[in-house]
Design a protein around this nucleic acid. Structure first.
Lengths: 206, 206
DNA sequence: AGCGGAAGAGAACGAGCGTTCTCCGATCTG
DNA sequence: CAGATCGGAGAACGCTCGTTCTCTTCCGCT
């Protein structure tokens, strides 16, 4: 029983991952309400019984899928941006990373915004998950702007967050990745105006 | 029969308006799929038969509601912004108008983004309606930036559109209208950098 | 007054959903 | 090898939805 228990646990983790993978793909492509639990079941290749053992209700599945997506999304962003040498380069790299994301063939906007629009008015957990995600992204931008040594880093971070947010929804609706380029150009203007120089800290901060 | 016909037509127009009013309120607050035709029916105070006479299917109701909302939304924006004396003031007034909108008690983001997230992956008409709306807004911003006489008005308009777009979704998710203020400050920086002066056309355009 | 036709109220229908239950084969224990 | 326990496949249940149908009422006309 101990051996089978451990095996089941491992299998459970792998099944959970497969289920979340399928849920992510389906919910993102078609919306949450348009995808039945049966579609998730058959895409993940598990039985309905097992699906409900691992996720007792659809809302739980949605919550866990959003939480996992949040971590994966921000991890990928941070990994990409933190590879750049300076805070300024890291901030601009955010828009390069967005560009790559927008160019993916199945890109359909931010899943948190999509889910918020669909369920935010009804489901408190979904609304909170979306809010938490956006706040975490903004906090990361705040870290980067603070590292530039600029005078008002939080205000600058908010403005850059607006550009990134706008680029995401614009790319989703237009079907073009251009908004990431436009956002990057605008971000450079804002960074220059705030006194963030190309290399290191501010030179002419008087 | 002619008299009753005219009366019915007038009644039909008024019933249609009432139905679209109710649909707008309900779809915006709860999402499209979460609101049944019966809820629209009872909110509008018409019979199901009449509802289906005027809108043969739910998708038609959604399309007409989005089209009407697009016109009303842009009309209100243009009326507000065009009251300002200069192109620069008109561009900045966009963010003032957004601030007022965000502060409305039942504000829940852009209905086109919400509907796109919910139905854009499934319904082509909804996706097109959302795209058309955003393009029309961007075109209006393009008119305003062109009127400033700046060198690259379309690029500036795109950047301002990103700010406005980002402000909308940020306000929806955070529940705060602050993003409109942040967007306005960023817009001023972009306008200054593009050479849009406080009064009239460019002074130092050589 | 009597009749025809339109309109309202809501029952009805078929489909699809989330969730549970039943059956059945496989696997492990003594 | 016998019996029990577990998990898979999918039928079943209760509900809701979009849409249609039925029945009744009411209005205008001759």
């Amino acid at each position: 029983m101990a051996a089978t228990g451990a095996g089941s646990e491992r299998d459970g983790e792998r099944a959970k991952a497969r289920i979340l993978d399928s849920a992510e793909e389906l919910f993102y492509a078609r919306g949450v309400q348009a995808v039945g639990m049966d579609a998730v079941r058959s895409a993940a290749g598990v039985s309905l019984k097992r699906l409900y053992q691992l996720f007792p209700a659809k809302e739980r599945l949605v919550e866990e899928f959003l939480r996992r997506r949040d971590h994966a999304w921000r991890d990928a962003l941070v990994r990409y941006a933190d590879a750049r040498p300076t805070p300024r380069a890291r901030l601009l790299a955010v828009f390069d990373w967005l560009y790559q994301w927008f160019a993916e063939p199945d890109f359909r906007g931010c899943v948190f915004i999509n889910c918020f629009g669909e369920l935010g008015g009804t489901s408190q957990p979904v609304a909170k998950a979306a809010r938490d995600h956006k706040e975490a992204v903004r906090a990361y931008l705040g870290e980067l702007t603070t590292a530039t040594g600029v005078a008002a880093p939080q205000q600058l971070a908010s403005q850059l967050a607006l550009l990134a947010e706008g680029a995401i929804t614009t790319a989703a609706l237009s079907g073009s990745a251009d908004s990431a380029r436009e956002g990057r150009v605008a971000a450079e203007v804002l960074l220059n105006a705030a006194g963030v120089r190309e290399q290191g800290a501010a030179h002419c901060n008087d």
